[in-house]
Amino acid sequence: MTPISQVTGRAIPFGLKNVDTDIIIPAAFLKTITRSGLGKGAFQAIRAEPGNIFDNPTYAGSPTLIAGDNFGCGSSREHAAWALLDLGITCVIAPSFSDIFSGNAFKNGILTVVLPQEAIDRLMEVARTDEITVDLETQTVTTPFQDRFSFEIDPFRKHCLINGLDEVGLTLARDAAIGGYEAKAKGSLPFLAVVEH
């Protein structure tokens, strides 16, 4: 996983509420067995509209996306996170995220920043003309106009993102604890510990 500590650049002022993962990447693009190349299908329905924000040259290559409430709701498809990465987006700012999407984003090194709607409204305005800086170390979003918004992030997630750590590797190191649980469960929950067939 690529470490991430600061994201600076233009941000796409998208702003839409309840953006589901079917909008981010439609099911027709899920028939892949790799993680790369999904950018071509990203936001397909929206990009079918002339003058859409994703094909606006002003925002080409923007590393940040600003969205509305409940971003990433719906399907658990991690392809949504892979599609954003393929577009070069490594940070999404929104008033709230679906639980599954924020987990998927985190596991792919995408920073999800939760800010109140007023802050989102201000950033949407700034994004039309200027760059935005998201700093994970200091947990702030700043603009060239002295705006400064602080955000909360789970300390473990912050640590993993900054250091590019692989969660599977970290958990495999807890093998003894997992084995201990399994031994105990065999006695206390034998009907769950094995599958009878």
Binding site: S76, R77, E78, A81, I100, G103, N104, K107, N108, E167, V168, T171, L172, R174, I178, E182
Partner: peptide, 15 residues
């Protein structure tokens, strides 16, 4: 529901 990275996590660690 879980994402694919979590599918990998469960397959490898059952947690």
């Amino acid at each position: 529901g879980i994402g694919t990275s979590e599918v990998e996590h469960v397959l490898a660690t059952q947690t």
